[in-house]
Write a protein that binds this DNA or RNA. Sequence first.
DNA 1: GGTGAAACGTGCCGCTG
DNA 2: CAGCGGCACGTTTCACC
Lengths: 149, 149
Amino acid sequence: MELDKKDRLILEALQADARQSLAALGKRIGLSQPAMSERVRKLEEGGVIEGYGARINLRSLGLALQAIVRVRTTHEHIKSYIRLFEKMPEVLEADRVTGEDCFIVRCAFAEPQDLERVVDALAAHGSVSTSLVLSSAVRKRVPLQPRSP
Amino acid sequence: MELDKKDRLILEALQADARQSLAALGKRIGLSQPAMSERVRKLEEGGVIEGYGARINLRSLGLALQAIVRVRTTHEHIKSYIRLFEKMPEVLEADRVTGEDCFIVRCAFAEPQDLERVVDALAAHGSVSTSLVLSSAVRKRVPLQPRSP
DNA sequence: GGTGAAACGTGCCGCTG
DNA sequence: CAGCGGCACGTTTCACC
């Protein structure tokens, strides 16, 4: 799917605030409301926009701590680890990666004891390296500038 | 701020689809539209909901590759690294962490050459370990079940 | 660009703790 | 009495032509 300048502006605006009206969006970008409606519909159906989500403050849910856990294991355990990640509510995201590590896992929790439980569970069939998140230095949106034409 | 069962249901529903009407939300949860309006307003003002964003498909932007780069450096370079992250469009997020690594950085790019540029830039005042993301095994939402009552 | 339908914000009232 | 939810209204926004 081809994206022009205005599509990119739309994506940028919808990343900043997904709950603004199509009319407000149109005013910002210079399109009428039906034109915006059509463009957004195409971006959704074309799979460019996968959905809309609320950004939740983890701290306000009592989850003040985050950690990034690197997991090393053997190939036979890959699938069971994926099932484990899906079962554990502390796991926010898990990526399978190249290199010595097999997975890099981000988790959130309320207290150090919770992290201990997570680490113990993940170390059952492999070894782990755990880093506590001190601060999120950058939390950017998706880069939208037209890249290398 | 106190969150009851219905607040958690609202957060769950808004994470799944932030662009649904308050009336539809109310139907799902069992509240009238004005009641929903009020609850959502309080969740926003209380800082529980930080905002609403569109989920963008990186592949459709031509960014088919992701990597996670761990950066080790000395304390004097911390601030300049944070500025560097903010300047680089490839950097999606960067967390400062405990342990031997100083930062764990996620980036997205179109071609391996782009990653090479990123790694070169990040290795200028430290050392890096780079892992290519093979697949995102888990991409969950924030856990909302009431924790440890 | 315009029109019927749906959604939103607000004020008022009743219920409950 | 305070907090919360439901009803009804005028206004805005949307989808379709």
